[in-house]
Nucleic acid binder design. Structure first.
Length: 227
DNA sequence: TAGGCCATCTGGTCCT
DNA sequence: AGGACCAGATGGCCTA
């Protein structure tokens, strides 16, 4: 594990995530529907006809080389994708020297790989949509690594809550004292603790993020809504 | 401007 | 043989 990952893991420890989940509550679930297309970053909806024509010209001038991007739903409007997928200068040097057959094989492999990565990103978007974090236009999308680590900790936290629930049920059924103090056992199930932001979809990112001032989490550096 | 994050290309490996 | 998966390299965009 590298240093960065270690820091990230530290920054979103189980306790932090437990806290985070309690504070954000379930009302943030499903709120992620708006992110993705509308989120700042990867998939701008702005038409870029000028750019397209420019790129078409460019790809023609770089030896008429063209990736099979259109074939697989590749989105040339994405600044990042277009910049390298259309700009074959980076790699076409070696590719151009290869036989035509070999070149087309390479291009189809590239297209497949691109599609695979897009699928992976779609899955990550799906994951972002169901883990509790601030989904709002002012909040930058979680990075890939943050999404995975947050999801992992969220799963652990859910398992912990389930275990406490089981203990609570056993306690209620048997009328026996449970091992952990009741307030602790009950805390995860108290409405106030779980939903501190009534209608948390309306809570500002800053409101949520400042609730975690105890952590030096890089996870929350996405908040551009700081007070 | 440096660093973080990302998309893409590429060659290698493994699997069907 | 062809496809899936992976990791390294490269370069663009964005933010502190």
């Amino acid at each position: 594990m590298n240093v960065g990952e270690e820091n990230l893991l530290k920054s979103i420890s189980n306790d932090t995530l437990l806290d985070l989940t309690q504070r954000y509550g379930q009302s943030t679930f499903g709120f992620g529907a708006g992110h993705g297309a509308g989120s700042p970053g990867r998939y701008p909806l702005t038409p870029a006809a000028d750019f397209l024509s420019a790129q078409t010209a460019k790809s023609t001038e770089s030896g008429g080389e063209h990736t099979s991007d259109e074939d697989d739903g590749y989105d040339p409007l994405d600044p990042r994708k277009r910049s390298s997928a259309f700009d074959d200068d980076k790699h076409s040097g070696s590719l151009a020297k290869k036989p035509k057959e070999q070149r087309s094989l390479r291009l189809s492999i590239n297209a497949r790989e691109r599609r695979r990565m897009h699928d992976l990103n779609d899955a990550l978007d799906g994951l972002r949509a169901v883990i509790p974090y601030a989904h709002s236009p002012s909040v930058r999308k979680l990075s890939k690594i943050a999404t995975l680590l947050l999801a992992k900790n969220y799963i652990l936290m859910q398992a912990q809550a389930l275990e406490e629930m089981r203990r609570l049920v056993a306690y209620l059924n048997q009328g026996q004292a449970i091992t952990s103090p009741i307030p602790t056992a009950l805390a995860p199930f108290g409405q106030a603790a779980v939903y501190p932001f009534t209608g948390s979809a309306l809570a500002t990112c800053a409101e949520k993020c400042t609730s975690y001032s105890g952590t030096s989490s890089s996870i929350f550096k996405h908040c551009s809504d700081k007070p």
